[in-house]
């Protein structure tokens, strides 16, 4: 099984946010590396999407899609920096 990059998370994240989160900057809780969500190494599989830091491979974000809910686990991210529309 080969990983994709964070761009492939755009669909699931669109269910949660009205902005394109793949353009947001994360800061990895493991190593402090910061970059766009789109640059995460994505292990997308049927249980859920696991985005890992390309610098240290720690898990930054997990997205689990249940039939009636979406779970977003961001404990691997110190913060998420989202550009505002029109800025």
């Amino acid at each position: 099984m080969n990983p994709l990059d964070g761009n492939a998370m755009a669909g699931d994240l669109r269910e949660l946010f009205t902005v394109d989160v793949t353009a947001a900057r994360y800061t990895c809780a493991g190593c402090g590396h910061a970059d766009a969500v789109a640059t995460l190494i994505l292990w997308g599989q049927e249980m859920g999407q696991v985005g890992r830091c390309p610098h240290c491979t720690d898990v930054v974000v997990r997205v689990v899609q249940a039939p009636d809910r979406v779970f977003l686990d961001l404990r691997g991210s110190v913060r998420l920096e989202l550009p505002l529309a029109g800025s």
Binding site: M1, P3, W43, Q45, E46, M47, V50, R52, T57, V59
Partner: peptide
């Protein structure tokens, strides 16, 4: 025997 991986 499907394989699911959350990492390398």
């Amino acid at each position: 025997f499907p394989v699911l991986s959350a990492g390398p």
